[in-house]
Simulated scan of single mutants.
Amino acid sequence: MLGIRQDDAVGAGDLRDRVVIVTGAGKGLGRAYALDMAARGASVVVNNRWVDREQASSAQTVVAEIRAAGGRAVANLDPAEDPETGAALVAQALAEFGRLDAVVSNAGVPETQRLHRQTREGFRAVFDINFFGAFHLVHAAWPVLSAAPAGRIVVSASSAGLHGGDGMAAYASSKAALIGLVRGLAIEGRSRDLMINAIAPYAVTAMTQQHLSPGLAARMDPAAVAPLVSWLVGEACDVTGQTLVCGGGRVRAATAVEGPPVELEEGRIGAALHTAMRVNPREAYGDAHQSFAAFMDERPALAVVD
């Protein structure tokens, strides 16, 4: 369902006059994002590498779908991990549409390899796509979005980056690095009204389909995640530095928290650690400086509980 959504013509769903780059947008979640944004009036640069040159490009197919419904879109076939792709995408958006308002870094690669079988080259390849592919785009777009009236950035993280997973060291650490990037850049962007957030999506895609039961897969339509991403790239977005878990029509915020400090006593180190892991309250902090100040507060630390 494309075409401008009349019920969203005014308000949070209105993306008319906004230009958005979406990487990995030829299929799965990225395709859902591109279609939803176009339906809300955005002009979209649809990026997806062209792997099989004997088949139609998935990016061009999505562009054709958007245009057939009256939307505006152009294709980009460059690999997201190429260091030059970010700058090329920004230049293409400016050349085709005259502006750039938001980027969505969605391109990524799965990985399941226990560390004793992981090569350094394989580990680096995962980072090149999942982290540096996003970084190159964000770095190239940052000056343009900083000057835009309401610049927005969304990167695709993962619950693996929050919690880890068996055989997912490279994937989890690349996604965790993105969460750190978002936290750092959110502070830099505040004075410019440049909002940046991470999304940890749950959806049935080529990456996840084999792990989902048919019943669960039916609930995990990528289209159920797209409205949140469209809101995050819009002018109405008023949150930044967040990691948002979304899927099946639900959303929740994932936050790094710290408990109160516990006295570290010689001979009771283990007991102190276990006490620290279970005591409350847990607090979230706006940045590392706030965390440090709270940790070094002159109030007495908690006593160890055996």
Rank of each mutant, 00 (worst) to 15 (best):
L15H: 00
I21S: 04
T23H: 04
G26C: 01
G26E: 04
L35R: 13
A38M: 09
S43R: 03
V51Y: 04
D52I: 02
S57I: 08
R67I: 05
G71N: 06
G71Q: 01
V74N: 10
A75Y: 05
A75T: 00
G86D: 15
A93D: 06
A93V: 06
L94R: 07
D101H: 10
V104F: 05
V104A: 09
N106G: 13
P110F: 13
E111A: 11
L115W: 08
H116T: 11
G122A: 12
G122L: 08
G122M: 01
R124F: 08
A125M: 14
G133K: 00
H139V: 06
W142G: 08
P149R: 14
A150Y: 07
A157Y: 12
A157N: 06
S158D: 11
S159R: 09
A160F: 11
D166I: 12
D166P: 14
S174I: 07
A177N: 04
V182G: 15
I187S: 11
R192W: 00
I196K: 09
Q210Y: 00
P214W: 08
M220E: 12
V229K: 12
W231M: 09
T243W: 01
G247D: 07
A254G: 13
V262S: 01
A271M: 00
A272R: 02
M277Y: 13
V279N: 10
D287Y: 05
M296T: 13
P300I: 01
A303R: 11
